[in-house]
């Protein structure tokens, strides 16, 4: 029974981790390939989630539609809507240099969050969209969970293979060339803006897909899905810790950081329990519920600490970038200056 329970937890851990891996892969296209500092991941993610939710839920007066369409169609639409918005933003903002693009995208994501929250006719406002259908949910436990997990992991694998191909293709090389030396790429006759918009749109489409899976996984979507903390910054942490410019790094970072984020809650109580055991009994008795709740904050502290350690140990990510053609050569100086 115990092992079965751990197994089921592992399934949820990997499902959520897999969704984050999709997000991190999308970000890797934008930042790792193209050097585009997108700090508005939450916006694309949420647009995808809402698009999929509106299309696949049953008809309801609470929000737009409820069109009851198949899940696959919802996922495709999520990618399309997300890509379309990215194209619009890209057309306007893509010439901004990295930090400025970051601030612009953060601003646009915040405005999107307010729109999702306030345009209740379409999104049911702050109360969100409920009863979202999920793939394989008709199956009995644990097959429903395993089916969903398999779908997520297969998608991660497919995206990995596709993006590896893109990374090694001429397109990928042009992208990294633009990232590392824009002037040189321009001098070589490349249309820098067009390539950048392409990377931005491709990455956003992948993020939209993650949003669609997220909506299915949670079965509920509200404006808090656009929370910049867990939908933008956490993805950045995953990519940088895993290794930007490396698709395997992005996947590894996502699973690793999500495991830290989630599993710390299992280990911190054990740790605190040990500490409490060292205290004299009368002192332990005085520890009131308030202290117990406060110790939950230590978990977040621990997450921050692990992050610092990973960064200092692996400043270029756990799996650093390797150039496809010149894998043995040191990274060019220009790459170190970027950011």
């Amino acid at each position: 029974m115990e092992a079965y329970g751990y197994g089921l937890y592992l399934v949820t851990l990997l499902s959520a981790g897999g969704i984050y891996a999709i997000l991190a892969l999308g970000l890797n296209v934008q930042w790792g390939f193209g050097g585009l500092f997108n700090a508005g991941i939450a916006g694309f993610f949420a647009v995808g989630a809402y698009a999929s939710a509106i299309l696949t839920t049953a008809a309801t007066p609470e929000h737009l539609g409820g069109f009851g369409l198949p899940l696959a169609l919802g996922a495709v639409a999520a990618m399309a809507v997300s890509a379309l918005i990215a194209w619009g933003i890209g057309r306007i903002c893509i010439r901004l240099r990295s930090d400025y693009l970051a601030i612009a995208t953060i601003g646009i994501a915040e405005i999107l969050r307010l729109v999702l929250k306030n345009e209740g006719w379409a999104t049911n406002g702050p109360r969100g969209i409920n009863r979202i259908p999920k793939a394989f949910e008709g199956l009995p436990e644990p097959w429903a969970q395993l089916g969903f997990l398999a779908m997520v992991l297969l998608t991660v694998l497919a995206l990995y293979l596709l993006l590896e191909r893109a990374w090694r293709s001429p397109w990928g090389r042009v992208m990294t060339a633009i990232r590392d030396s824009e002037a040189a790429a321009r001098a070589a006759g490349k249309n820098v803006e067009r390539f950048r918009v392409q990377a931005f749109v491709l990455g956003a489409a992948v993020m939209g897909l993650a949003g669609a899976y997220y909506a299915q996984y949670i079965k509920f979507i509200g404006p808090d899905a656009t929370d910049p903390l867990t939908a933008t910054f956490l993805v950045w942490v995953m990519l940088i810790a895993g290794g930007s410019g490396n698709n395997r790094g992005a996947i590894l970072g996502a699973f690793l950081i999500w495991t830290v984020w989630s599993a710390t809650e299992i280990f911190t109580p054990r740790l605190l329990g040990l500490l409490a055991g060292l205290l004299p009994a009368d002192l332990a008795a005085e520890l009131k519920a308030e202290t117990v709740v406060r110790s939950a904050y230590l978990r977040v502290f621990l997450i921050g600490l692990v992050l610092q350690v990973v960064l200092q140990r692996y400043a270029r990510g756990i799996l650093p970038e390797t150039r496809p053609a010149v894998a043995a050569a040191p990274p060019p100086a220009a790459a170190r200056e970027r950011g």
Partner: peptide
């Protein structure tokens, strides 16, 4: 937060039983 709740719920239901 919905996703944190799913994660927290999965832990107490599956690990802590």
């Amino acid at each position: 937060d919905p996703k944190a709740a799913v994660d927290a719920g999965s832990k107490v239901v599956n690990i802590d039983q």
